[in-house]
Nucleic acid binder design. Structure first.
Lengths: 121, 121
DNA sequence: ATGACATATTCCCTGTTGGACATATGATGG
DNA sequence: CCATCATATGTCCAACAGGGAATATGTCAT
């Protein structure tokens, strides 16, 4: 209910792998839809829809050129994301408690992740 | 079909605002579920569910202490996200193609008169 | 053992999502 | 004006997410 329409929020926009791929392709520079379709082998309607979402969020800009639509990145809109991640970066870069790291690896060995929370030590 | 269950991928995990809030709260340090519930005013079952997702993705670790479960951040798992954003950071910080930037500003029709980004071709 | 507390899990429901497919829009060239 | 290219949009569908409420699990205190 409270869930935002996702086409309005950068975090949701980049939650989709295809959308991320499209953005990654667009790093190469402005290009028409066809080029993206060709690079990614996603159906053209899908690419258009994803571009629409990205556009609504503001992550890409569109420019008409003849019958082509040239899309290009507008990385500015990644700022909120960047800032959010930045809050954690200092924890990322600083070495954590070695024990913590060790426990992390231990827990990872469970693999299936069916139940991360184990009983009391 | 190809769509991953979303509870498996960091990008999806942080797509949810509530999940982000929980992480943000956990920046304050290890704490039990009740504290999170209290801070965020999300229902306890919901918090537990979100914690489960975060746990599966690896973003949080859990430790049992008596009848409490102490959760704490594991920012390491934000690396993929950080790296992905990093690809765009240089575009964010560096001046873009002066023309692109110029056009962007034009399209935005911003009248703030900020001068800082000059193309200077 | 019993009851109180802290947390996890289950069931149900509704809204949204992304994909496939077909079709509409819009521009271009003859 | 018509055919064609490039892209957008609409419809239908299966899957899933997240919320609420009730309930199960597990732990402590007495």
């Amino acid at each position: 209910m409270v869930r935002s329409p996702a086409t309005v929020d950068v975090f949701n926009a980049i939650a989709d792998a295809h959308r991320r791929e499209i953005l990654d392709v667009l790093v190469g520079g402005e290009m028409p839809v066809g080029a993206i379709v060709d690079e990614l082998a996603i159906s053209q309607p899908q690419v258009s829809k994803h571009l629409r979402v990205l556009s609504q969020v503001g992550l890409v800009h569109c420019r008409a050129l003849g019958r082509h639509r040239l899309y290009r990145l507008n990385p500015t809109c990644l700022r909120p994301l960047q800032e959010w991640v930045a809050k954690y970066e200092h924890m990322l870069n600083a070495r954590l408690d070695r024990l913590d790291d060790y426990l992390t690896e231990l827990q990872r060995q469970e693999g299936t992740g069916s139940n991360e929370q184990q009983g009391a030590p």
